[in-house]
Design a protein around this nucleic acid. Sequence first.
DNA 1: CGTAACTGCTTTCATTTCAAGAGCAGTTGC
DNA 2: GCAACTGCTCTTGAAATGAAAGCAGTTACG
Lengths: 169, 169
Amino acid sequence: MKDDHRSGCPINLSLEVFGDKWSLLIIRDMIFGGKRHFRELLRSQEGISSNILADRLKMLVEQGMLTKADDPTHKQKAIYSLAEMTIALVPIMAHLGAWGRRYLPVSEELSIRAELIEAGGPELWDRFMDELRHEHLGLALDGPPRVRATLQAAYEDVVARKSRESAVA
Amino acid sequence: MKDDHRSGCPINLSLEVFGDKWSLLIIRDMIFGGKRHFRELLRSQEGISSNILADRLKMLVEQGMLTKADDPTHKQKAIYSLAEMTIALVPIMAHLGAWGRRYLPVSEELSIRAELIEAGGPELWDRFMDELRHEHLGLALDGPPRVRATLQAAYEDVVARKSRESAVA
DNA sequence: CGTAACTGCTTTCATTTCAAGAGCAGTTGC
DNA sequence: GCAACTGCTCTTGAAATGAAAGCAGTTACG
C-alpha cells in the first residue's frame, strides 16, 4: 500500500526516513537536549520554522520513529517520545558528531558534547541509551540518569567560559 | 565568505554536507559499487536524474568530499575519487546499513552487503577503508584488495539464487 | 475575574529545489 | 562512416521550503 520506496537498500530506506536537513536535528534535540514539546523543539539552534517542524513530527510519528501523547499537566500540550528505533540511532549520532568535529568547522560550545560522547565510547552510548529508554519508554534503570546531565553541564561550562573571555576582550 | 552555516553543531554541519536524499547514495555507489564515472553513477538503483547527479557531484567536489580528474583513457571521461573524509564515512555507512536492516523493510539482495559489513565489524571496515585509500588516494596496501569483491560476490550469489527460485515458482 | 503569556499547530504566499526528459558537442570503437 | 558513448545542460512543471501571521483555546498570576 505505502511501499513506494525507491529501492530496498538499507541505506536508501534509512535516508527516506531521516535523509533531510531537519529530521535528524529534531531527533538530536530530543536525544541530547531532552526536548519533548513542540515549542521547545521550535527553539532549535538552526531556527526551524513551525510548519516544517509540524510536518516532520507528523512524518516521524507515522514512520514509527516517535510517539505522541497528551501531556497530563496541560490540556494543550503534546509530549513526543523516542521509539526504540530512534534510540538505536545514538551510535550513529555519535559517529556523525565525531566525523563533523574532525572534518568540518564546528564551534567549540556546540561540539563539546560530541567530544565527550566520542571519548566515552560505546559504553557511554549504551548507558545513555538505557537512560533514554527509561525516560521515553518507561524501562527500568539502575542508578540515576547522569549522561545527559553531564553533557549539559559541560556545554554550560564552555558557554560560561566563553562569555567571560569575550567580556574581557 | 561562504560561512552561511545554520549553526556550528557537528551534526548540523554534517547534514549540510550530505543531508539530502541523494548525496549519500552517490557515496554509497562509489564506496560499495566501485563506481567512478558519471554514467555509472547515473545507473543507480534509485534512478537519480542527470541534473541532480551533476549538481551533487559539483557540491561534493566543492566541499572536499570528492575530487575530479581527467580519465587518461578517454578524453571526455572524468574520474571521481573519494577524499579521506569520505572514506571516513565507512563506519557510518556500516551503522546506517545495520540500522536500516533492523528496522526497515529492506530487500534481501540489497541488504546482503550490509549484513556482511555488520558481521565483519570494525576490523573489516578498517581493511575496506585501506582498500579505498589504495584505490582512490594511491596509498600502499599490503595484500590484494578483497573486501569489495567479496561483498559483490555475495550480492551476485543472492541475485542468482533468487533468479533460480523465481524460475521454479 | 481579567489578562498576558503560552499551547500546538495551520494558513498564506513567495522562493527555491526537484525531477523527467530531451538534447548536445564532442569522442571512441568497430 | 556511423552507432554508441562521454559528461553534462536546458526546459518545464511539480513539489518542497521558509518566513510570518494567525488561531482557538489553556494556564498562571495578581
